[in-house]
Design a protein around this nucleic acid. Structure first.
Length: 426
RNA sequence: GCGAGCGUAGCCAAGUGGUUAAGGCAGUGGUUUGUGGUACCACCAUUCGUGGGUUCGAGUCCCAUCGUUCGCCCCA
């Protein structure tokens, strides 16, 4: 076909479903506001180096999934694959740390990863994320998890599982990595091909392989939890205690590994069984080394990101999209009437009513059919007769009752009109 | 990047080598030229994602290509 289509892995969010997005955005905005989180909006593209340094060159996200190109000034530009790096860059660039204390930030917007699309995964997708910068306290870890749980619960989502783990600090992880490689190397030939590859590149990932045989072998592998130093251990215990205090159910999963290099200590995921293979709705954790790595002061931090497409997939399984009821549908026929209808519609809109004006010029019957489909509570009718007397017929769709009223009178007592409309709504 | 399935109208589809491509929804016009949700009638794909091939003949078989879906890798 010669028509232009949206690129692979991108899609339009049409008016028919945008209500879900608006509901998610407003719930999130409200909950984050109550938590004293402030919104930050950073650019959609950044210097490629930001992600290479921040996320880690060895990760798949950087190694094979980035939308990277040269701009006309020969700079290497990358469409952001996630939100944390940009937020941290901005935090450093504007010395936000110098405001002292702890910064609670949130963001939302499109992210880009060059991958094969499948259920719950697109090349352009959207995340909602939070970052708490400046606190190493376990309460920060617990708080961000509580905020995420709060958002998901407020939206009515069910059957979610929270998995948590600690990947320790850099030293813990280094020691564990070695132990794991030592354990797995003798089994190398029996691992699936992907995992054999990962043995040298990213051995921790082998733990959550979907290959059965690999799982069998990984079952008896050493656990990261046995390699945590005393600080890491205490921190992780505190996080668990606080989650219990908050009444948040969780599952300890020592095999949970996050894909980005910057994570330290707490790692967590919230998953659903109703999403197919891409089960993670929310993923996050602590990243104490990132701010310093990107050239800022040594600053502990913790955060998460929710995949909005996945969240909305779940929402659509559970509930109908909210519809905002229309107050008036205006039908008109004849030159003078049509002009008056426009003016009347506009005055009603300015007075706070929602009004759809039929512009088609088709017969009254057709216009009434559309009025019916629009779901309007009432219909306003203007023909030659009404235009002549400057009146309008007001018809209540449900009862089919209708009466003539002067246009000026209709606009006079808007409070009463509002009351009548509301009393007719289902 | 790899594997499998699928591509017929705006949407859902029937069709498995033989004259003119079912049907439903939506849309448009009419029965009712100023009154809706029902009913009835009419119209709505010279064409089956695209290109090539096999054949007397292809939506139907073959190849390629593009798109899409699900899965792997990976992640939100």
């Amino acid at each position: 076909m010669g028509t232009i289509q949206a690129l692979r892995g991108t899609r339009d969010i049409l008016p028919e479903e945008v209500g879900y997005w608006q509901r998610v955005e407003s719930a999130a905005r409200q909950i984050l506001g109550r938590g004293a989180y402030r919104e930050i909006r950073t650019p959609i593209f950044e210097p490629t180096e930001l992600f290479e340094r921040g996320i880690g060159e060895a990760t798949d996200v950087v190694g094979k999934e980035m939308y990277t190109f040269k701009d006309k000034g020969d700079r290497s530009i990358t469409l952001r694959p996630e939100g944390t790096a940009g937020a941290v860059r901005s935090y450093i660039e504007h010395s936000i740390y110098s405001q002292g204390g702890i910064q609670r930030l949130w963001y939302t917007g499109p992210m880009f990863r060059y991958e094969r699309p499948q259920a719950g995964r697109q090349r352009q997708f959207h995340q909602l994320g939070v970052e708490v910068l400046g606190s190493a306290d376990a309460r920060a870890d617990a708080e961000v998890i509580a905020i995420a749980a709060n958002i998901l619960q407020t939206l009515g989502l069910k059957n979610l599982r929270l998995n948590i783990n600690s990947v320790g600090d850099l030293e813990d992880r280094q020691r564990y990595r070695q132990a794991l490689v030592d354990y797995l190397t003798p089994y190398k030939d029996q691992l699936d091909p992907d995992s054999q590859e990962r043995l040298s590149r990213n051995p921790l990932r082998i733990l959550d392989s979907k290959d059965e045989r690999t799982q069998e072998i990984a079952k008896d592998a050493p656990s990261i939890l046995d390699y945590l130093g005393s600080n890491s251990q205490r921190h992780f215990e505190q996080v668990q205690q606080l989650l219990s205090d908050l009444g948040i159910d969780y599952e300890l999963n020592p095999r949970l590994v996050r894909g980005l290099d910057y994570y330290t200590h707490t790692a967590f995921e919230i998953q659903s069984d109703d999403l197919g293979a891409q089960a993670t709705v929310c993923g996050g954790g602590r990243y104490d080394g990132l701010v310093k790595e990107l050239g800022g002061p040594d600053t502990p931090a913790v955060g998460w990101a929710i995949g909005l497409e996945r969240l909305i997939l779940l929402l659509q399984q559970l509930q109908e999209q909210p519809q905002s009821a229309l107050d008036f549908y205006v039908v008109s026929k004849g030159d003078r009437a049509e002009a008056q209808a426009l003016v009347l519609a506009q005055k009603l809109r300015q007075a706070g009513f929602s009004v759809d004006l039929d512009l088609t010029g088709s017969g009254f019957k057709k216009q009434f059919t559309r009025a019916d489909k629009s779901g309007a509570v009432a219909c306003l009718i203007l023909g030659d007769e009404e235009a002549e007397n400057h009146t309008v017929k007001l018809k209540w769709m449900a009862s089919k009752e209708q009466n003539a009223i002067a246009q000026a009178e209709l606009l006079e007592n808007t409070d009463e009109l509002r009351r009548q409309l509301d009393s007719q709504k289902p």
